[in-house]
């Protein structure tokens, strides 16, 4: 009813903006959560926590700024502060089964996010994807994180520095080491692609 002064939003305005600006990030955010936790339920919880916090602190979010980077930062902090402690060690499980399940069992779901295309041409892609996923999942979480942020989500070094609270120089060196590790893990695969060493 009253005039808008400063950051004060009515509940309706807040809900509308929350839905328009933050909910569209759900897909990348859930994928990030899954790559961090390597567990569907944990990813679910982490994403819910993130959105709850984002809603609570929505007044601090400036319209037109990078909503995706802001949410990723909240999620990453939640993961470090609360989550990592209580969750089991995720490193040594093979998750390709879960991923396969997700990708083939979406027949009834019309989520539109990752609709299955042609099953025949996809099988080769699946094999490569499985290789990459298990190599990536075997990396330490800090390495996995920078690779996801950079190569899957396309964040710039500057955005990554803000999300991770580290200087750009550290982003660069961590990314470099992460890629070297990933390269080692994928070496077999690379050889089969015709690259030596």
């Amino acid at each position: 009813m009253s005039d808008q002064t400063g950051k004060q939003l009515s509940k309706e305005e807040k809900d509308a903006r929350f839905e328009a600006e933050l909910l569209p990030v759900l897909d990348p955010l859930y994928n990030f959560a899954y790559r961090l936790t390597l567990d569907e339920d944990d990813a679910n919880d982490l994403v819910q926590e993130t959105y709850l916090k984002a809603y609570r602190f929505f007044d601090y979010f400036e319209q037109g700024t990078n909503a995706k980077a802001w949410l990723f930062r909240i999620l990453k902090n939640s993961f470090i502060n609360e989550f990592r402690k209580k969750s089991k060690q995720p490193a040594k499980v093979d998750y390709s089964e879960v991923e396969g399940y997700y990708n083939t069992d979406d027949v009834e779901g019309e989520s539109g996010v990752a609709s299955t295309t042609d099953m025949r041409t996809e099988s080769v892609q699946d094999l490569i994807g499985d290789e990459v996923a298990s190599a990536l999942n075997a990396l330490p979480v800090d390495f996995r994180t920078v690779i996801i942020l950079c190569d899957l989500e396309g964040f710039t070094y500057e955005e990554m520095a803000k999300i991770l609270d580290i200087p750009i120089g550290t982003v660069r060196s961590r990314l470099h080491r992460a890629r070297n590790s990933l390269k080692e893990k994928l070496e077999k695969y690379a050889k089969s692609m015709g690259y030596n060493s």
Partner: peptide
């Protein structure tokens, strides 16, 4: 470039559970 392309082009995205938006 190949290494980056493997992640960018081949890592599967997991599908968001349909109930998640409602839960949030």
């Amino acid at each position: 470039k190949l290494l980056k392309g493997l992640v960018t082009g081949h890592l599967k995205r997991v599908i968001v559970p349909k109930s998640l938006v409602q839960s949030i």
